Amino acid sequence: MTKKNLSVGELSLRSGLPVSTLHFYERKGLIASERTSANHRVYRREILRRVTVIKIAQSAGIPLAEIADALSGLPGDTSPDTHDWERIAENWHDDLTRRIERLTALRDKMAMCIGCGCLSVQRCPLVNADDHLAKDGPGARLL
């Protein structure tokens, strides 16, 4: 017989995340626990899948606020189905494609930058192409 709920320690072990991270996710509304009669936290088994999606999304660079927004559309009383997860993936598809394109361009320009040796923010095509930031005066503009 499979247990219906996981303790926070079991969820930590199964997900590979520290208990403190799971508590953080809960405070941020990404996951939810229930309380036993002894006031111990327990998580429905499907929370493990939610935690996995959070980890994958974070590794892709999706901010926690966007993850929370996407997860808020999932049903709270039942396990999300394939269509629920597909909807989230579709919503992130274009953003991830843009990120991949930007990172690919950065990677390709990085070799040029390292080999250039100009050390000039004014002339650097990577951070200040055509010195378009000069009109804004001195100081960091892109950070």
Rank of each mutant, 00 (worst) to 15 (best):
M1E: 04
M1R: 14
M1W: 02
T2P: 14
T2S: 10
K3L: 06
K4G: 00
L6M: 15
L6Y: 14
S7P: 01
L11P: 05
L13A: 10
G16C: 09
G16N: 04
G16R: 07
L17N: 10
L17S: 07
P18A: 13
P18D: 08
S20C: 02
T21N: 14
T21D: 12
T21M: 14
T21L: 11
H23V: 13
H23Q: 14
F24I: 07
Y25T: 13
R27K: 15
R27S: 13
L30V: 06
I31H: 09
S33C: 14
S33A: 15
E34L: 15
R35D: 00
A38R: 09
A38C: 00
N39P: 00
R41Q: 03
V42E: 10
R45W: 05
R45E: 13
R45A: 13
R50P: 01
R50A: 01
R50N: 00
V51Y: 08
V53W: 09
I54F: 05
I56M: 13
A57T: 04
S59I: 02
S59K: 14
A60S: 07
A60N: 08
G61K: 03
G61S: 07
P63A: 14
L64Q: 06
E66Q: 11
I67T: 10
I67L: 04
A68W: 00
A68V: 03
L71T: 07
G73E: 12
L74A: 05
L74Q: 05
D77E: 14
S79T: 12
D81I: 08
D81Y: 00
H83F: 02
D84E: 07
D84Q: 05
W85H: 06
E86V: 04
E86L: 15
E86R: 13
R87C: 08
A89H: 09
A89F: 03
E90K: 08
E90N: 07
E90V: 04
E90M: 06
D94M: 03
E101S: 11
R102N: 09
L106V: 10
R107D: 02
K109M: 15
K109L: 13
A111K: 07
I114W: 05
I114G: 03
G115E: 13
G117T: 08
C118L: 10
S120E: 03
V121I: 13
V121Y: 08
V121M: 10
V121W: 00
Q122T: 12
R123Y: 01
C124H: 04
C124R: 12
C124F: 10
L126W: 01
N128D: 10
A129T: 02
A129W: 01
A129P: 12
D130Q: 15
D130Y: 09
D131Y: 05
H132C: 06
D136P: 00
G139H: 12
A140F: 05
